[in-house]
Amino acid sequence: MIPAAFDYHRPQGIEDAIAILQKHGDDARVIAGGHSLIPMMKLRMAEVPNLVDLQDIESLKGITIQNGRVNIGAMVTQHELITNEGLAAAAPIMREAALQIADPQVRYMGTIGGNVANGDPGNDMPGLMQCLDATFTLFGPDGARGVKARDFYEGAYMTERDDEEIMTAIHFDASTAGYAYEKQKRKIGDYATAAAAVMLTKDGQTCSSAAIALTNLSDTPIWSQGAGAALIGTDCGPAAIKAAVAAGLDDIDPSEDNRGPIAFKYHAARMMISRAIASAWARA
């Protein structure tokens, strides 16, 4: 498995990177950790005449948490997400989810920016970002703009990002909500058969807010407003969970693959949603 030849660029700043993208248009792609892109290139399913490596751009690195707002540079790796104690306190669901992505070696290289930006419906972070109601910063020739994760995904590998833009950072509010990321997969290193990210807050014994997002159950991540709404004002008991599951299943459109037929995907989604709600409620 050998990729086709390409020209390699390693810009030192984001403006330089954008300039390269502008120059080469469709013939250029950025590479972060490369663990989605490189296998595709090796299988010759992606041809990239100009590869723009973002590793030297310092402004894309680091995690900061200020005034209850979490800011994560796009080049922050999964490994950093797992080991950053500040993040674990501000948004513990990040560590829980990141530990379920790929394997140790891949997590050292794989970045949050790569995971959320390329639009692969199998990736875990996009659903999580929708659950957290994150905002992505996209930097382009005209400067920066913010796009909500919940508005970002259009189809498989199709997003709001323009070809000449680079995702530079991810932002969301720190949260003390109960949380859970439940993922069914065939083995370590696999994409989800079905996965659910759930965050809940509690007022007494009543659910006061709920966000539920689903992974690999459609050609985009699914933020299920209906599923969340079904929980608010309830005790998150069996009836409420059943209603939330039903709403969640209404929103998905899974396809058959080696992980199973469509009926099984629905079933697995049902299990992941209900387990994630129960687990998040227990932590709320």
């Binding site: 069914q184 065939r186 058969t193 992980r259 199973g260 037929p261 009926a263 099984f264 079933h267 697995a268």
Partner: peptide
């Protein structure tokens, strides 16, 4: 006996 096939047995 992968996940979906075991699910199918139960189903």
């Amino acid at each position: 006996h992968d996940h979906w096939r075991i699910w199918k047995i139960g189903n």
